[in-house]
Design a protein around this nucleic acid. Structure first.
Lengths: 87, 87
DNA sequence: TAAGATTTGTTCGTATGTATA
DNA sequence: ATATACATACGAACAAATCTT
């Protein structure tokens, strides 16, 4: 996730998105449990808050997670996922 | 942005940090006593909670204060300060 | 025992500024 | 000009520890 590496064919936020999506689908982050906080994800991936939020916003639009203000961002169980809008 | 604006020399949190550090070193806030609460510092300086916390976190890393959950943030006496890491 | 107040700790939500490609 | 990405800074709510009533 370092910016000084040779031109990646994916942006930083896309790479983080793919990784989190993979973890959710593999249930590394389990249904009804929170994913790590924005601050923790910032530190783990070494990216800025805005970048993490962009990723979480897309995961939320995809119906994979649901953010709850002041509490955390929770993994939505498969059964409860609406039709993905695939934006 | 149509015009160029000069960047401030110091950020808000740096200014508050300098002021609190000065007060501790001048013993306006005395050793083993608590500094004002986060809420009081917010109001005095007119800044947000997150900004105050950023300042207190750095003062703690510097070994000047020690936060105690549910109680307050206490000034560490000089004799008890470890070597400052000077981050 | 219970309830409330105060305080530190943590989290999401939002906006702005700066720099770069 | 637009999108990406960083840092700063605001607000709001939730949570847990401590103390008092």
């Amino acid at each position: 996730m370092t910016r000084w590496e040779p031109a990646p064919d994916q942006t930083v936020w896309e790479q983080v998105y793919d990784e989190l999506r993979t973890r959710i689908e593999a249930e590394v982050y389990k249904p009804r449990n929170p994913v790590p906080s924005i601050t923790q994800l910032e530190q783990e991936f070494g990216v800025a808050r805005g970048t993490v939020r962009k990723v979480l916003a897309k995961l939320a639009r995809d119906g994979l997670v649901r953010p709850i203000s002041g509490k955390g961002t929770y993994v939505v169980p498969r059964e409860e996922r609406g039709e993905s809008v695939d934006s």
